[in-house]
Amino acid sequence: MTKAIVIEGLSKRYGDKRAVDGLDLVIGEGECFALLGPNGAGKTTTVEILEGFRQRDAGDVRVLGEDPGVVSNPRGRRGRASRAEWLDRIGIVLQGSGGLDLLTPREALSSTALAYSRPRPVEEVIAAVGLEEKADQRIAGLSGGQRRRLDVALGIIGRPELLFLDEPTTGFDPKARRDFWGLIASLRHDGTTILLTTHYLDEAEHLADRVGVVAAGRLLALDTPENLGGRAGQDATVTWEEGGRRHSFVTARPTRAVADLTARLATADGEVPELTVTRPSLEDTYLSLIAPHVVVGDDVEGVKGEGMQRDDLQVTAGRPSGGSTRHTEPGRATNGVTR
């Protein structure tokens, strides 16, 4: 696989704080990669270094074959033409940007399209993000979700080979997030390499080929969502009800345990009362990975809405055990996630 992004030993510090601390990562062309981590983990710093908005302190970085620190520096040897050529192949969706209130989505997209050498048709992009009805209305009147979809539209209008998405769905309602995932999936289908940062575990699980968990500027785990932290091979927790009390035990062989329970306890209709079999969810694995690194109140990158509060509350409330409240049918008990 050709490499879209190569990061070797990346470091960046702000004063005494090490925002990024020796990060190594390779992202292949056409891959959808999700960067997960608590606030202050260094996600945004890393992404902004890749986008050329920040200068790194140490390490080597290549994005589409170019060093962003050199290509984006107006005083660099490569000059401005090269920067424009590089950005022509990249789409950047920042964490939130305004300033377009007085324009309409169509005006903003048409103007932005002019900057690129082979832009997507404006109509096509408006349809892709589902803004047909709002295309000729002032952006000031758009909802938060619609504005975010416009941000993505502006990010993909140039037909990028590589798309950066920094917390694209923070503040979305569930329906808007589902629609948004469909959009990202179709971009991925077209071969766009996507680097996504997110607070939402289900989002990473749904969209990403691989996820990287960062905390305190270091990569703690790197795998497919299914295998992260070795969770596919981890022991399952079997719980059931017997004599009016709830029982559970952890086993490497849940199928056998269920068979034993069925033989011993099955009621007339063949069911074991309140039977569940669960393996750690991605969220459980994620929270146990970052738990040692999360300091409450340590918030370098600023408060970013509900995602952060949700994460922090769970972390401060202690590590969840095996997701004992999750009910799954014995026959297809796996990761507690329906694919």
Binding site: A84, E85, L87, I92, G96, S97, G98, G99, G158
Partner: peptide, 21 residues
């Protein structure tokens, strides 16, 4: 000043548009 604060300038900077434009 407004456009710098609300991120419009940063977004323009993230496109291949020449700064002179």
């Amino acid at each position: 000043a407004m456009e710098r604060d609300d991120g419009l300038l940063k977004r323009l900077r993230s496109t291949p548009m020449p700064p002179s434009s």
